[in-house]
Amino acid sequence: MSKKILLVSRHAPYGSSTAREAIDVALAAAIYDQDIGILFMDDGVFQLLKDHQGKYINQKNIDSMLSALALYGIEKIYVHQESLDNRTITTNELILDDLQLLNSIDVGHLLSQQDQLLSF
């Protein structure tokens, strides 16, 4: 049985384990062949910045974990445009070039299309 699942990631990459444990859920969902998408919004967009230096805080780089999403067949990766704008982040600063940018209205539509939401 496959359901349309959206994982919403709203936390910064470091400082708490939330972002990392959210990615683990996404990968698990992909392994179990679910129709999974990921939406980055609020501080979650910081995860998508290039060139993390996690080694200075003894952390694995979140950006390289995110680069693995495609290998697991996760193709639906969404980013909330206003979250980027509010943090003065431009798209050329981001890893992954197949990101889909959504405004707030698009996000509303996306959420309403899902069978399940997993919010982190």
Binding site: V25, A28, A29, I31, Y32
Partner: peptide
């Protein structure tokens, strides 16, 4: 494992 969360979402 986390698969149990995914399975719960699916069923």
């Amino acid at each position: 494992g986390l698969g149990q969360l995914v399975e719960a979402a699916a069923v």
